[in-house]
Every structure is written in structure tokens, then in C-alpha cells.
């Protein structure tokens, strides 16, 4: 009996460290597959090279970084205010009963597969951009790209996709602000709006911040949605209507037909992506932990 229990405990411990083993394996294999070519080509040349043309041996990923960065920043510009507004709405304004329904809607938004978002962007957003935004833009800049596949399209779709992350984490941290803070503010004669803006949001600052960081990580890592709508041109964008290629999209698209060396290069792109996301995740995790400790 004793040995049986001991054996079970071992199996359970093994299961618990499975996630850790997975992270280890992932790190190892991504680096193993991509590092040699990265070192051979030179990290500086790789990251700051402005020409991405793998078939010709040009592996500069600056255009891809610019692509990822531009749509990520765009998505944050749209998604962060909206997300925080929804979180405040949920935590402070909406009645309990309705808040539950609203929360469910946000969860639903999180459940929609990314390829469906991409498809929606393709059939609704891109024609809309072509029809309504492009003419206005053309007025100022007649040379602008006319396809609709663009930074803008990617940013809008990504903004929707990162909303659930921002909303749910921000809402949690706003709801976790001690009632005393709120009462103290209201007792001083502040109205609800002033309390929200001056007390609740500042008090929930670190939670909101880590939700933004996690959302950013999600935006950077998102693949299939952006693949369908950003146009996949490895060029540093000049306007928000320019097509771009992202780190993730490039990997997904080119992996299918890549030669062995090209594959290794794509793994090297994976390394860059992986490192960036890991840093963001670790920062978010650490700050979440800190909030947990303070509460």
C-alpha cells in the first residue's frame, strides 16, 4: 500500500512538471533548429537587415519586425482604451445581472478561432477599408497601396482579439481594489467618475499594465488572422494602408515550401519571436505575482 501511494505521488509530480518540461523542450528545440544559421548569418545582420528574400539568401528581418510592431502598436492604440473602458463598465457601472452576460460575450470573443477572425477581416474589413478609408486617404496621398491588405486591417482585427485578455485582467484588478479606497474617495465628495479616474484606475494600475503586456504578447504571437489580412509584403510600412509581413505570418506561410536552409532561417525568426514573447510573459507574470502579494 505504502509503495503504491509513493508510486502515485511520483506519477503526479511528473505530471505537474510536464509543463516545465514542455517549456524546456520548446526552448531547446527552437534554439537547436534556428541558432546555427542565426550565428552564421550574424545576429546584427539578421535583426537589422532590411531585405527579407530567403530564396536569394537575404535574411534581414527588420521589415518583419516593423510589420509586427506596426500592427501590434496599432492594435494597442485601439484595444487598450476600449479594453479598459469595458473593464470599468463591467466592474463599476453595469449591474451584476447584466455584467454576467457581458462577461460571457467577452469570453465568446476569446473563443472565436483566430482563423475565423482572419476570414472575417478578409471578407468584411478589407473591402470596407477599400471602399471607405482608401478614397479619403487617396485624397492626400494618391500613391497609396490600394488593396486594403494593410497595417490598419491587422491592427483592427488584433485589437478585437486582444480585448478579452485586457478586459478580464483589468476588470479583476479593478474589482480587487479595496472598497475602503472607493468609500474614502466618495466620502470626500468626489463623484463616481472622479473616483474611477483618480482612485480605482491608479490603484489597479499594475494589473491593467500586465493585462496590456499580455495582450501585447498575444498580438505579437497571433498568426493566422494577420496572415490573411496584412498582405504579407516584407517591406517597412510607410503608411497605415501599406501591406506588411509579420514574424509569425512569414513563418506560417513559408514553412510549407521552404528548403532546409530556409526552414532553419524561419526557426531563427522563431527564436526572435520566442525571446520577445518570453520576456513579455515573464514581466507580466512577475507583476501579477506582485499584485497577488500585496492584496
Amino acid at each position: 500500500m505504502k509503495t503504491y501511494e509513493k508510486a502515485i505521488e511520483k506519477v503526479i509530480l511528473l505530471s505537474a512538471i510536464m509543463a516545465t518540461i514542455s517549456v524546456g523542450l520548446i526552448t531547446f528545440f527552437i534554439f537547436r533548429s534556428g541558432l546555427p544559421v542565426l550565428l552564421e548569418y550574424g545576429i546584427i545582420d539578421f535583426i537589422f537587415g532590411t531585405t527579407w528574400s530567403p530564396t536569394n539568401g537575404d535574411y534581414g528581418i527588420l521589415p518583419l519586425i516593423a510589420g509586427t510592431l506596426s500592427i501590434t502598436i496599432g492594435s494597442l492604440i485601439i484595444g487598450v482604451p476600449t479594453g479598459i473602458a469595458c473593464a470599468v463598465f463591467l466592474a463599476e457601472i453595469l449591474q451584476k445581472k447584466w455584467a454576467k452576460a457581458f462577461k460571457f460575450s467577452i469570453e465568446l470573443l476569446a473563443g472565436i478561432p483566430s482563423v475565423v477572425y482572419g476570414f472575417f477581416g478578409l471578407v468584411v474589413l478589407i473591402p470596407a477599408i477599400r471602399e471607405y478609408i482608401l478614397p479619403i486617404y487617396q485624397f492626400f496621398d494618391p500613391e497609396v497601396s490600394q488593396t486594403g491588405f494593410s497595417v490598419l486591417a491587422g491592427a483592427v482585427i488584433l485589437a478585437i482579439m486582444i480585448l478579452p485578455t485586457i478586459v478580464s485582467m483589468s476588470e479583476n484588478s479593478i474589482a480587487a481594489v479595496p472598497v475602503e479606497f472607493k468609500e474614502a474617495s466618495l466620502a470626500l465628495g468626489a463623484n463616481k467618475m472622479e473616483t474611477i479616474v483618480r482612485v480605482l484606475i491608479p490603484a489597479a494600475k499594475s494589473g491593467i499594465l500586465s493585462s496590456i503586456i499580455l495582450g501585447m504578447g498575444r498580438a505579437i504571437g497571433e498568426t493566422m488572422a494577420v496572415l490573411l489580412i496584412t498582405g504579407n509584403m516584407a517591406k517597412i510600412p510607410g503608411t497605415i494602408l501599406d501591406p506588411v509581413a509579420t514574424l509569425t505570418g512569414t513563418i506560417a506561410m513559408e514553412m510549407g515550401y521552404a528548403s532546409p536552409t530556409h526552414q532553419q532561417v524561419l526557426f531563427a525568426v522563431g527564436i526572435v519571436l520566442f525571446v520577445v514573447i518570453m520576456i513579455l510573459n515573464i514581466i507580466a507574470q512577475l507583476s501579477v505575482r506582485k499584485i497577488g502579494g500585496n492584496a
Binding site: 517549456v23 498568426t223 506560417a252 514553412m255 519571436l273 520566442f274 514573447i277 510573459n281 507580466a284
Partner: peptide
């Protein structure tokens, strides 16, 4: 938090 494309790779 690891994105799916990395899992894919």
C-alpha cells in the same frame, strides 16, 4: 502564453 506558431515550430 507561448503563441501557437511557436508550438507549431
Amino acid at each position: 502564453g507561448i503563441p501557437s506558431i511557436i508550438f507549431g515550430l
